[in-house]
Design a protein around this nucleic acid. Structure first.
Lengths: 143, 143
DNA sequence: AAATTAATTGTAACAATTATAATATAAGAA
DNA sequence: TTCTTATATTATAATTGTTACAATTAATTT
């Protein structure tokens, strides 16, 4: 239940120091229901940490990713977005306003097996995203 | 069979002018079995077009994408790669050396329907990629 | 508490991409 | 064909997200 505590324990186990900045970034990621960019996190925390560098945000997001706490979602030239890893899920993304909604879809493991079999790759993981218009933007389209 | 001719016709139909640069970029994309970056295309053609600007490559790749001839594959901070659209396929990507292999996997349409149903989005398309190590890199790993 | 190791900061650098303005050119009309 | 005009190309500057770096600060070990 307490994701933050588990995350901090997980950091401690892997020998990653727990600093106030890391604590705050993790907390923000967990509480944020959105999927913030590095800059959004930076701006959200500048009240609490006026001297924090944007490099610290990036550095720590990379650390969290390497430890497996956080997933980085990249979309071409736009900023990467960061998602605290809880359960396995996919994302449905609005191409108009950028809203991201989580979406459960179990059992895409077979695709990994098939790909491995056909290509000879040692498959590690996959990504899938679904694009369209969210209800709000879709209704605005029809004018 | 003749993808280039079809592509040029398709450009003509949509009122896009056919310039020598556009011709060459399309030709390169079709003949290249890889999935080149904008810069790779630029460098590959600088023999034939010593004065071509890198902006021209980007501009035209965007035009081709808008017309639907070309698909842009984006991976975070790395360069985008461009794929001439023939049949619907996915990509298996080597995380070590960057090699991209095409992979057929029909019938992921149901995921769009389900996503639409669950989230209320008007779903347009999806992307999926599979990550791992290609046979060459995988064999190097075990030393 | 002192020593050691790692993290943070501020800034500069980077790389991919796009904007801009001047020049050149494709394609249809005369 | 030549003329015309809208569009494309070029060269360069600007932008943006991200990372590298060196100096400083802070967390853990001794």
């Amino acid at each position: 239940m307490n994701h933050l505590k588990e995350a901090l324990d997980s950091l401690k186990d892997t020998g990653v120091r727990i600093t106030p900045q890391r604590h705050a970034i993790l907390e923000y990621l967990i509480n944020s229901m959105s999927h913030p960019t590095a800059d959004e996190i930076y701006k959200a925390l500048e009240g609490k940490f006026p001297n924090m560098s944007v490099a610290t945000v990036y550095n720590n997001l990379r650390v969290f990713r390497e430890v497996g706490l956080v997933k980085e979602l990249t979309y071409g030239d736009a900023s990467a977005r960061f998602d605290f890893v809880t359960s396995h899920h996919y994302h449905v993304i609005c191409e108009k306003c950028g809203k991201i909604v989580d979406f459960q879809y179990p059992g895409l493991d077979e695709v990994e097996h098939l790909a491995s079999h056909v290509t000879g790759f040692k498959v590690e993981n996959h990504r899938m995203e679904i694009y369209g218009s969210c209800p709000e933007c879709a209704s605005k389209e029809v004018h």
